[in-house]
């Protein structure tokens, strides 16, 4: 009898330590949705490049690493990127809030705030840096840079949330570095990193943490 109460004590200590220091309401479904949006965005961008008269110029721009196209030409990519990011964040918030409510967890506690601040620092630096890259005309480097900074921000934020996020971050960094070497295929790596990987890791997270609750 006493044995059981000690086990319960240890389990409760563990659960309280986890709940109070990590943000664990993150929904895997939001990863899957973000990945789907990214793939749709990449698909539209691909169509646009194919139909564009500046197709060759674009390819050349990537391979020479330097291109001075006008704003109007890559504005669509920026718009697509912003649209994908906004949709992903809104969906992620909604799904995470729903999950937190279902588990009776508080979404705006200290651990959520800490995770967001730690995510935001590398992400903001990355955003500014990519704007500088665009401004300087290094368009080909933008896709690798977004992947690398996104990966760094995930690794940084993962200290305060689920471990799966750390793995995803490392994978994003590796894809970003490969994309920086293999210039000219930015869109492909972008779709791989933001699309396919989000879907894979989102599914893994859902499988690991949420599946049981649906069945129960």
């Amino acid at each position: 009898m006493e044995n059981k109460s000690h086990i319960e004590q240890l389990a409760e200590i563990r659960s309280l330590m986890e709940r109070s220091s990590r943000f664990i309401s993150l929904s895997g479904l939001s990863g899957i949705m973000a990945g789907t949006y990214a793939l749709i965005g990449a698909f539209i961008a691909r169509l646009y490049i194919k139909n564009s008269e500046t197709y060759m110029e674009f390819i050349e721009g990537y391979s020479t690493r330097y291109v001075a196209t006008s704003w109007s030409e890559y504005r669509i990519f920026i718009l697509l990127g912003v649209a994908v990011a906004t949709l992903s964040i809104v969906t992620g918030l909604l799904l995470t809030m729903r999950r937190a409510k279902k588990n009776k967890q508080n979404i705006w506690d200290k651990s959520a705030l800490r995770m967001l601040v730690n995510l935001a620092i590398p992400l903001a630096v990355g955003g500014v840096f990519c704007t500088i890259l665009l401004y300087q005309g290094y368009i080909g480097m933008v896709a690798p840079a977004t992947l690398i900074f996104y990966g760094l921000s995930l690794v940084n934020g993962s200290k305060y949330t689920l471990d799966t996020i750390r793995h995803l971050g490392i994978v994003e960094i590796i894809i970003g570095l490969i994309a920086a070497v293999d210039l000219g295929n930015g869109l492909f790596y972008w779709a791989l990193g933001f699309g396919v990987m989000h879907i894979i890791y989102g599914t893994a997270m859902w499988w690991k943490y949420e599946r049981k609750q649906v069945g129960a």
Partner: peptide
């Protein structure tokens, strides 16, 4: 006591935690 055990668990992994946060967690 379950509550004292809880307070200590939470404070072991957090630096300065306010009363209401501890209350909500426990």
């Amino acid at each position: 006591s379950r509550v004292r055990l809880g307070v200590m668990s939470v404070l072991m992994v957090n630096d300065w935690m306010d009363f209401n946060s501890v209350k909500d967690l426990l």
